[in-house]
């Protein structure tokens, strides 16, 4: 059990570099000294120019990228050193990620794509589908599409399916990568409402928002990731 005052997401002195073995083993440092903490109910916006490392930091937190050093504690688990099965457990129960791209098994219905995170934590099928249906309705995905695979949907529809899936289960920590990009005003308001509700129930959130109005509405503070750019070697 975590002490109640502890931050949900606690990132300490994280660095990252890529070594391109097939291109002369060039080593490219991309991040150094990344440090930030997010408490329950707080939403922190990552800012910085394109290429500054916002998405890289998100992928490090989610465990897609392997950090070279430092600690990334989510609910007390250090993602940098955790076993794959511990990270999978973390992703099932603690850490959600709304990426910009929907990646699903072909042929699975939209309703079940959205319900899947709930089924993964043993929610009964009818309850999971009810929750999925209400999210899809809220995000204005027409009901006649629910039984179809989202692989054939338009970009905007896929994005909304992705958001519904990301908010189906109440994760204590969430990563949001451009959740409002390319949404119309109505759907954008719905997504901002979902983010507000997640904060109200105590979720710790890190987000990337290019939409400044959206950013100002949901973020409590901002972190400029340019501060984590690697310093040139002396």
């Amino acid at each position: 059990m975590l002490p109640s005052h502890a931050p949900m997401i606690d990132i300490r002195d994280v660095s990252k570099s890529f070594t391109l073995h097939n291109q002369g083993s060039a080593t490219i440092p991309v991040m150094q000294g990344a440090t930030l903490a997010v408490g329950p109910g707080e939403c922190v916006g990552l800012v910085g120019a394109s290429g500054a490392g916002k998405s890289t930091l998100m992928r490090l937190i989610y465990g897609n990228y392997l950090a070279a050093s430092g600690q990334i504690l989510i609910g007390g688990l250090d993602v940098v050193r955790a076993e794959p099965r511990q990270i999978l457990e973390l992703r099932r129960k603690t850490l959600g990620y709304v990426s910009q791209f929907l990646r699903v098994v072909p042929r699975v219905s939209t309703l079940d794509v959205v319900a899947e995170p709930l089924l993964a934590v043993d929610t009964p099928l009818d309850l999971a589908r009810d929750r999925a249906a209400s999210l899809l309705a809220e995000l204005n995905i027409p009901e006649r599409l629910w039984s179809l695979s989202p692989t054939t949907f338009s970009g905007g529809e896929q994005q909304r399916v992705n958001i519904a899936r990301g908010f189906a289960y109440d994760y204590p920590a969430m990563l949001l990568d451009e959740p409002t990009a390319s949404l119309d005003a109505r759907n954008r308001a719905t997504v901002l409402g979902l983010i507000g509700a997640a904060k109200a129930r105590g979720a710790a959130i890190i987000g990337i928002f290019h939409d400044e109005a959206a950013r100002d509405q949901v973020c409590d503070r901002f972190i400029d990731v340019s501060a984590f750019a690697p310093r040139a070697a002396a």
């Binding site: 890529f18 070594t19 391109l20 073995h21 097939n22 992928r59 465990g63 897609n64 990228y65 392997l66 794959p84 990270i87 999978l88």
Partner: peptide
């Protein structure tokens, strides 16, 4: 070895990098 999406998104070994690319 590693988590599937980590190995595919951030391969560490030269051979895995070649395979993924």
């Amino acid at each position: 070895t590693g988590l599937t999406d980590q190995v595919l998104d951030d391969p560490q070994h030269a051979y895995t990098q070649l395979l993924v690319s």
